[in-house]
Computed example of a mutant assay.
Amino acid sequence: MSIQPGTPLPAFSLQDDQGHTVTDKDLKGRWTVLYAYPKDSTPGCTTEACDFRDNLARVQSLGAQVYGLSRDSLKSHQNFIAKQSLPFRLLSDPDCALLNPLGAFGKKLMYGKEVQGIIRSTFLVDPKGVIRHVWPKVSVKGHVEAVLEALAALQKS
């Protein structure tokens, strides 16, 4: 079960792909798109990351920043960023310290089998650190457009 809109982003301290520590406090002051994805360099995750990359100027024009979140290592993140020219940070959460409280890790079906893993999800966090929109079980196609629409709508309200 994903965390609900209106809930503060859980406190966290994770390393980004450069080895810098990023905390929930670092995200305050700007809108943040935080997307959880299963694995670097896999087809769906590459498509999603490249969609965010290709639309980053639009996200930034709405005053927002993008962070990807997975259990992958810093080295894996570095390779993924280099290969896909990703212009945003990827956070490493090997122990699911943030993924679990977000509800982005748990049982899912993969090739007809139930497995434990990252549930592709996106969280739109406002400048005060409150989650304003949640997309649980994201379908990659058209997702970035939906995020942009929600971001624009929330800023008007």
Rank of each mutant, 00 (worst) to 15 (best):
S2T: 12
P8S: 13
L9S: 04
A11I: 14
S13C: 08
D16R: 09
Q18Y: 00
T23P: 11
D24W: 12
K25D: 15
D26C: 04
D26K: 03
L27M: 13
L27F: 05
L27D: 02
G29N: 09
G29E: 10
R30D: 10
L34Y: 01
Y35C: 03
Y35E: 03
P38Y: 05
K39W: 11
S41K: 14
G44C: 07
C45S: 09
T46K: 10
A49P: 00
C50W: 08
R53I: 02
R53P: 01
N55M: 08
A57F: 01
V59S: 04
S61Y: 14
S61Q: 13
L62A: 06
A64W: 04
A64T: 04
Q65D: 02
Y67V: 11
G68H: 06
G68N: 15
S73E: 13
S73I: 10
S73L: 08
S76R: 15
F80S: 09
A82M: 15
K83C: 15
K83P: 07
S85D: 11
L90A: 12
D93L: 06
C96E: 11
L98D: 03
L98H: 08
N100F: 10
N100E: 14
P101I: 06
L102Y: 01
G103F: 09
A104H: 03
K107F: 05
K108M: 02
L109A: 13
M110I: 15
M110V: 14
Y111G: 12
G112V: 07
G112H: 10
K113S: 05
E114L: 12
E114D: 14
V115S: 07
Q116M: 13
G117M: 01
T122P: 04
V125N: 03
V125Y: 00
P127M: 14
G129V: 08
V130T: 14
I131Q: 04
H133S: 02
V134S: 05
V134W: 03
W135I: 01
V138K: 00
S139W: 05
V140F: 10
V140S: 08
V140K: 06
G142Y: 00
H143F: 00
E149Q: 06
A153L: 06
L154D: 01
